[in-house]
Design a protein around this nucleic acid. Structure first.
Lengths: 216, 216
DNA sequence: GGTGACGAAATCGTTGACAATTTTGTTCGC
DNA sequence: GCGAACAAAATTGTCAACGATTTCGTCACC
């Protein structure tokens, strides 16, 4: 994946700082609730404070950092209750995407989903939770892409970004992939059957299971 | 302190510019796709360009303006197809809020909804579409508030802000309030019955009707 | 007469410095 | 010894100016 050198378009200082900071937060290199001093970040990324400032405003709008007037920025800490609330929103939005994908996907795209399903089953059978987690995200991304619902996709991206920490914690839970894979296969089957109602129900059931797992 | 219109107490320059600009866009004082030159806005609002710039970044994140690198900012134009996609997201999110409100609202809050329902019926019977539109928004806001789902409420606020133009266009459509009021009463009844599934269905039915009306 | 390159105007992105605010460390009074 | 007022340091918010990029008008050239 593209770390920093984004060949697409101009390498503006603000964009540079933004992607750097976002990656740093998403990779967990910033401690939760850590103070983000504009001057430090500016020197760290080799850009000016104004660029860091603009990037922080963007990240605050994405919900990744919290900005208090005259008191600075901190990485936003997502509590378990907030993670549950976010996943509830994901539930209905991914249900919408699954239902739309069941109607609008092409036959080729349906076979893509089927292939992904077999790959996920294999990853679970081989006991490789990390590759399964990757396929998991790929599946959700593909369903969203096939739905053609760009607005929902943007909202889901924003929501998912806030869950990285909890997602990691969940993926490594023993026994979790075994339960998860069946729910995913049900989603794939419903979409392949071009049954929007069943796809919505399957997606909701999966995210409901995720909520239960989050609550522990 | 006696500068100009200071909506609320100790407002910083950026917040001042932001609220001013947002209000101007939401009230339709800016033509669709109008160019927003930072210098002009800075002089218009009596703040510096940096503050206007920060405000524009915020509004871009809210989806109200569109920022193209090195090419300026414009008020974002929401096409009908986009409005439909946004309303589809509203559909599932308001369904979630309605279902949650049916469970978590207090009895006092349920009577508030009932009162609002009678007021809406009266407004339609009296043929006052503007007061009905106000009550309409109040109802949706109250249901969201009673749901306790803060994440969904924030997403809905963001989505609704992009629909102001279409909302106006829709409210003045003849015959529309008469159809709308029944759907709203059904939502209120389902929530008062503390039936989350029925509340979700009623909310979805209402927004589906809105989508049909949008498509004309 | 049409097309391409060149240059000027406009606008955005960036820079460094200054002012306002908050936080922290210190000292004085009780 | 403990709490409150005070001063110093750190940090954010704001400002005016500079440089980079895009856009549009003009002119030479084919």
């Amino acid at each position: 994946m593209a770390d920093e050198a984004r060949p697409s378009g101009g390498e503006q200082a603000k964009q540079h700082a933004l992607t750097q900071l976002r990656h740093a937060i998403l990779r967990g290199e910033m401690a939760p609730a850590q103070r983000l001093v504009e001057n430090e970040l500016a020197e760290q990324f080799g850009v000016t404070r104004a660029s860091v400032r603009a990037a922080l405003i963007d990240l605050a709008a994405e919900g990744l950092v919290e900005r208090i007037p005259n008191r600075g920025s901190r990485v936003r800490l997502v509590t378990v209750e907030e993670a549950v609330a976010i996943t509830e929103c994901r539930m209905v939005l991914e249900g919408l995407c699954a239902a739309k994908a069941a109607v609008q996907a092409t036959d080729d795209q349906l076979t893509e989903l089927a292939d992904l399903g077999t790959a996920m089953s294999k990853a679970v059978a081989d006991g490789e939770p990390m590759t399964y987690s990757g396929l998991n995200q790929e599946l959700h991304a593909k369903i969203q892409q096939f739905s053609g619902q760009q607005v929902a996709v943007e909202l889901l991206d924003r929501l998912n970004a806030q869950l990285v920490r909890h997602r990691f914690q969940l993926a490594l839970r023993p026994g979790r992939p075994q339960q998860s894979v069946n729910e995913h296969l049900a989603m794939i089957e419903a979409i392949r059957a071009r049954d929007p109602h069943a796809a919505d129900a399957a997606a909701r059931a999966h995210l409901t299971s995720v909520i239960d797992a989050l609550r522990e």
